[in-house]
Design a protein around this nucleic acid. Structure first.
Length: 494
RNA sequence: GGCCCGGUGGUCAAGCGGUUAAGACUCCGCCCUUUCACGGCGGCAACACGGGUUCGAGUCCCGUCCGGGUCACCA
């Protein structure tokens, strides 16, 4: 098949130029792990920081690993995180299609162009066994490398299965530049003639990337550092095509501990898992942004960042070269910060379903309960167990009435409850203020400190020693009848 | 094993030749207080090691050690 020069010219002509263009290019495996999310975030930030374009591209060249519905997880996650893309499979764009399996023809054409330039060759060898450990680690010499183009073409035409391999020079060295790792030079002899087009006609990741990044006008390629060692081969490819090399930004991995990356296999949480565990999207993004990047200058000590603030502050300079260990404790801290920063209304809204998991009685106000919870929970999932006592009075022992700091014991508590019950019963309004004033006045009248009266009331009302909120708030939420019922029950224990 | 990249408290991290080596999380005290939280204040805790270069090194160079990545018709 003859090469169509016109085709290449048209493809070149379509490439948008002059603006920063970045792309997030996941393969649809159905799982957005934390490292992935961070890569997407950084990629988006680079684009937004420069007023550029953010593109979503789906890399599905491995036909054997396609996962049903996986692309939806990607769309959903990006949307939920507000990492909006300007171009992509769902929204289209000037360099569509954005799904690699739909660009198969393009890769084939460019691979043949490379063959014609002498930078690649047809290979008819049996699939190399990855059984390794054959003792030698030398670059194998592929016999097909020496085949003449005519001979190879004849075998291709005859229908013989083949792959196309990159022809890497045997001599010399290649220098590759990365925005965070700097210059990396490797000897060409340590590079192998990697496969560009697989036997099924699909491109390999490494080839599809180079082609697409060029054809889509990508200016900054952001990806994991596991690709760092194959990067020099890219330069050779760009050089072969005579294309300009984009800025590469390799990110060090997010680790579960000092020796293992985060992985599904180890049961490490994905973005969705974290959501289920009660973490807020904004908190997750904020924390993840700081795992591998830190602000400089006068905001060097700032830790809380909105997405917009991140977009403004983000710079490649602040990126770390070393792997970072994911710390759920610190994420939890960020989550607590975000929870507390919400308006009471917004908090009540997100807390509501968790409150209702434990508190079924609709007469108990979820707004009032939420108000008690806001400063007291770090994750939304902490809620049910904290408020269960509102729903059902726990079994508890009279020992709870003893607290030395409040100067209470069973005898004192008995006296306190005996005084509190009629007073509360006489209240005409069951408001926070009324209950509070009533109790404080009663303590004064009984000549005891507030805590001495509050402690037994709270214990009897809640049935547990640790509660969100104090005696007043709990009584208020419970309502008059239930409060009195519980206090009388408490009295019976004494 | 070859090649590549890293190495500041337990964790995330400032630091770019001269600092009492920031800050945050965790942990521990104290204050506040109606329990628990929130909040406030204080504390414990680090430059992997050995050689250079320099008046001076966490910062530059070399070696060692440790860790990670890669060596697929997976991405």
């Amino acid at each position: 098949m003859a090469l169509d020069r016109k085709y290449f010219e048209e493809m070149e002509a379509k490439i948008p130029r002059g603006k920063v263009r970045t792309r997030f290019a996941p393969s649809p495996t159905g799982y957005m792990h934390v490292g992935n999310l961070r890569t997407a975030l950084y990629t988006w930030l680079i684009a937004r920081n420069a007023g550029g374009t953010f593109i979503l591209r789906i890399e599905d060249t491995d036909q054997g690993r396609l996962v049903e519905g996986a692309t939806d997880v990607i769309y959903k996650t990006l949307a939920e995180c507000h990492l909006d893309h300007d171009e992509g499979p769902d929204v289209g764009g000037p360099v569509a299609p954005y799904i690699q399996s739909e660009r198969r023809d393009t890769y084939g054409r460019y691979a043949r162009l490379l063959v014609e330039k002498g930078r690649a060759y047809y290979c008819f060898c049996e699939k190399a066994e990855s059984g390794e450990d054959s003792g030698d680690f030398e670059r194998g010499v592929d016999p097909c490398r020496a085949l003449s183009l005519e001979e190879a073409q004849a075998r291709v035409d005859a229908g013989e299965p083949y792959v196309i391999r990159q022809r890497v020079p045997e001599e010399g060295s290649t220098t590759f530049h990365d925005a965070i790792f700097g210059d990396i030079t490797v000897e060409n002899k340590t590079l192998d003639d990697q496969v560009l087009i697989k036997q099924d006609g699909m491109p390999t990741y490494n080839f599809a990337n180079v082609i697409d990044d060029h054809l889509m006008g990508i200016t900054h390629v952001v990806r994991g550092s596991e690709y760092l060692s194959s990067a020099p081969k890219y330069n050779l490819l760009y050089e072969g095509f005579g294309w300009e090399v984009p800025t590469y930004v390799h990110c060090s991995p997010v680790m579960r501990d000092a020796q293992n990356k985060m992985s599904k296999r180890h049961g490490d949480p994905s973005y969705e898992d974290l959501k289920e565990q009660g973490f807020l999207t904004d908190a997750i993004l904020n924390y993840v942004a700081l795992l591998g990047w830190s602000p400089r200058g006068d905001i060097a000590e700032q830790e809380v960042f909105s997405l917009d603030e991140l977009a403004r502050a983000f710079d490649l300079e602040g990126m770390s070269k070393s792997p970072a260990i994911f710390d759920i404790e610190k994420l939890t801290h960020f989550n607590a910060l975000y929870l507390r920063a919400m308006t009471p209304e917004a908090f009540a809204e997100v807390a509501k379903p968790y409150i209702r998991q434990a508190v079924k009685d609709k007469r108990l106000s979820e707004e009032e309960i939420a108000a008690l919870l806001q400063a007291r929970c770090e994750r939304l999932t902490d809620i049910p167990e904290k408020v269960a006592f509102f729903d059902t009075l726990p079994e508890y022992s009279a020992d709870l009435f003893t607290n030395k700091k409040s100067k209470t014991n069973p005898e004192v508590s008995k006296a306190m409850l005996e005084a509190a019950i009629p007073m509360l019963e006489g209240l005409s309004y069951w408001t926070q203020d009324a209950i509070h004033s009533g109790l404080v006045a009663l303590a004064e009248q009984l000549e005891v400190k507030n805590a001495t009266l509050m402690w037994p009331v709270r214990v009897a009302a809640a049935g547990q020693s640790v509660t969100p909120g104090g005696a007043v708030e709990i009584c208020r939420v419970l309502g008059k009848d239930e409060t009195l019922r519980r206090l009388r029950l408490g009295l019976k224990k004494l």
